[in-house]
């Protein structure tokens, strides 16, 4: 039972940690409150609002993510990709769950299309209201998680080479747009005003696919099995005990 309930730590060490952490919390609060009393205030709000008409979108958060600080978002997609490569390099995925019963399958048949639909809505609405590529990608990934819980071992993802293409699609389109703006004589990812909205939508669409693929692959938790690309989930389940043995 070592893993389910663990031993309690030593009492003296626990007490010391608690005392030190209370001191740390007091120090942090003191520093923050004395600083907040003298802080200048509004930060970058005014600047972000002033530049909003030139960004191509009207939602300030999307403007920051995909226009002002687009390079950060590009690098963040690379962080996601790196994490997924790390997960894949650690071995094959677990065989997955057993085939779901009729109730769960019926639920999934309703919920998965709804998730895809609301993902598309969030992607589109992200230009002017709360939403955007990350939320849309998360909803698509949730659809994948539901499929995996319902017995599909690869969580509705395509085969491995298509997964690799999907995983780099967002980063590739992002970098290509950046290179195109460089070639056009502007800065990296410095969009021309007339095209900014459409370029952001293009980048966001592919970024959504990439984020959904990477998050679902992270949930599957390993490299997909090389063969059995056309196997039904039921066949997978029957073969699963071999891998365990």
């Amino acid at each position: 039972m070592r893993n389910s309930l663990e031993p309690k730590p030593q009492r003296s060490a626990a007490l010391l940690v608690v005392v030190l952490l209370i001191l740390l919390a007091g120090l942090l609060q003191w520093v923050y409150f004395t600083h907040a009393a003298t802080a200048p205030g509004a930060g970058l709000t005014a600047l972000a609002q002033a530049e909003l008409p030139r960004s191509g979108v009207t939602n300030p958060v999307t403007a920051v993510l995909l226009n002002y600080r687009a390079l950060d978002t590009l690098l963040e997609l690379s962080v996601l990709l790196t994490a997924m490569l790390g997960i894949w390099s650690l071995g094959p995925a677990t065989p997955g769950y057993q085939q779901a019963g009729a109730v769960f399958a019926g639920l999934a048949a309703w919920v998965v299309p709804l998730l895809i639909l609301s993902g598309g809505y969030l992607l589109w609405i992200g230009a002017k209201a709360p939403g955007g590529a990350f939320q849309a990608g998360a909803l698509l990934a949730a659809a994948g998680v539901i499929q995996r819980l319902g017995g599909d071992p690869r969580a509705s993802l395509p085969n491995e080479s298509a997964q690799r293409w999907l995983a780099i699609a967002g980063i590739g389109i992002f970098a290509l747009v950046g290179l195109a703006t460089l070639v056009a004589g502007r800065g990296f990812l410095d969009y021309p005003l007339a095209w900014a909205g459409w370029l952001i939508l293009l980048i966001e669409t592919f970024a959504t696919l990439t984020i959904a693929t990477l998050l679902t692959a992270a949930y599957v938790g390993g490299q997909p099995p090389p063969s059995q690309t056309t196997a039904t989930p039921g066949m997978h389940r029957m073969q699963a005990p071999d891998r365990k043995a």
Binding site: V61, G131, G132, F134, Q135, A142, V145, Y219
Partner: peptide
Amino acid sequence: DVALAEAAIGAGL
């Protein structure tokens, strides 16, 4: 925006 992302990604996934 962040609340949506936290509910979907942080809490959900």
